[in-house]
C-alpha cells in the first residue's frame, strides 16, 4: 500500500515545547484522525508538512515528494483547511475565485461554483459575513477545486454546530470514495474521528503515543473500575491514569493485561475520549510522584 504521507523522525523544538521523533504514515485511500491535547504539537506537525515551519531533523514526504524541496508541487495537489479563514474577508467568493485561479495548474472554476451551490454559499456576498460553518465550507470548496489528492484539515470543526460537523463528515466521506486520495484531520472532537477515521495518530507532549488503525486502538484498551484493594500488585504498574475516588478507582488498561483479573473488577471498552483523558491523568500522576519523591 502506497503512503500518501510519510513522516519519520520529525524533531522540532522551540521554547518550552518540542516535537520528539514523530513518525507516522497515512496510506492512500484513507482518512487519518490526528488527536491530542491543545499544545501537543498537532498544528506544528501540520505546518511542518506544509513547509510553513522549519524542522530540526526528520523527513516528511507527501506523494513521495520531499516536503521541503518539492513543496510547491505538493501544494498544487494539496488542499488545506484551517480553523479560521485565510481569505480576503472583504471580497466575495466570486472575487476570491478570480484571485486563486491563476495559481493552480488544475483549477476548475465550474467545480468551485458547483460546490458553492451545493454548500449553499452565496457567491456575491462578502465572505467576512459568512458564519463560521460557511467559512469552513468555503475553504473546503477551494480545497476541492484544484484536483487536490490530499486534504489536510487543522481543527476544522472547532466552534461548529453539530449540523455543520455532520456536513463536514459527509463531504470527507464523499471525497475519500476515490481510493487515490487521502485526508488528514486534526481535531479535539473524538466522536468525529471515531465515526469516520480509518487511522488515528495520538500525539501527547510532542510524542506519538499511538499510530495505527483506529479499530486496533479501540480493541486495545479498556477502562477498569472497582475497589482499590482488589487490584493485584503485578497489575498496578500497568494501569494508566489511575484515579481513586471515594467509591473505588478508575484506570485505563490494555486489554491484553485484563487476563486473570478478579471478577470483582469491572471493565468496559475504552473509547478515544477515555484514552486521551487517562493519558493526561497519567501525566499528572507522574508529575505528582516526581514532586513527592523530591
Amino acid at each position: 500500500m502506497e503512503n500518501i504521507l510519510e513522516i519519520s523522525g520529525l524533531n522540532k523544538s522551540y521554547g518550552d515545547f518540542a516535537l520528539k521523533d514523530v513518525s507516522f504514515s497515512l496510506p492512500k485511500g484513507y482518512i487519518m484522525g490526528f488527536v491530542g491535547q491543545n499544545g501537543s504539537g498537532k498544528t506544528t506537525t501540520i505546518r511542518s508538512i506544509l513547509n510553513m515551519a522549519k524542522t530540526d531533523s526528520g523527513k516528511i514526504s507527501v506523494f513521495g515528494l520531499d516536503s521541503v524541496n518539492d513543496t510547491i508541487e505538493i501544494k498544487q495537489r494539496t488542499g488545506v483547511v484551517f480553523d479560521s479563514l485565510y481569505l480576503a474577508e472583504h471580497l466575495t467568493a466570486k472575487q476570491i475565485e478570480k484571485q486563486l485561479k491563476p495559481f493552480y495548474n488544475d483549477w476548475q472554476s465550474d467545480e468551485f461554483f458547483k460546490r458553492l451551490k451545493s454548500f449553499e454559499l452565496p457567491d456575491n456576498k462578502k465572505v467576512g459575513e459568512f458564519s463560521k460553518g460557511m467559512k469552513m465550507k468555503l475553504m473546503i470548496a477551494v480545497a476541492l477545486s484544484h484536483k487536490a489528492e490530499l486534504i489536510i484539515l487543522d481543527e476544522p470543526t472547532s466552534g461548529l454546530d453539530p449540523v455543520a460537523r455532520d456536513e463536514l463528515l459527509d463531504i470527507l466521506s464523499e471525497y475519500i470514495e476515490d481510493e487515490n486520495r487521502g485526508v488528514l484531520f486534526s481535531t479535539h472532537i473524538t466522536a468525529d474521528v471515531e465515526r469516520i477515521a480509518d487511522y488515528v495518530t495520538i500525539l501527547h507532549n510532542g510524542k506519538v503515543w499511538f499510530t495505527g488503525e483506529l479499530n486496533t486502538l479501540a480493541e486495545s484498551y479498556a477502562v477498569l473500575k472497582g475497589a482499590e484493594e482488589d487490584i493485584p500488585e503485578s497489575v498496578k504498574e500497568k494501569l494508566i491514569g489511575f484515579h481513586a475516588y471515594r467509591n473505588g478507582f478508575e484506570a485505563l488498561i490494555k486489554t491484553d493485561d485484563l487476563a486473570g483479573l478478579p471478577d470483582s473488577l469491572e471493565y468496559e471498552k475504552a473509547n478515544l475520549d477515555d484514552i486521551l483523558v487517562y493519558i493526561a491523568k497519567e501525566d499528572k500522576n507522574e508529575r505528582h510522584a516526581e514532586n513527592n519523591a523530591v
Binding site: R47, L50, N51, M52, I72, E73, K75, Q76, V80, F82, S84, L85, Y86, L87, A88, E89, H90, L100, F103, Y104, G128
Partner: peptide
C-alpha cells in the same frame, strides 16, 4: 490591514508559490 485581518500568512503558506 487586509493581510493581517484575513490571516494571509496562512494563505501564503498554502499557495503553490515560493
Amino acid at each position: 490591514s487586509v493581510a493581517e485581518k484575513s490571516e494571509f500568512h496562512k494563505l501564503y503558506g498554502i499557495l503553490p508559490v515560493k
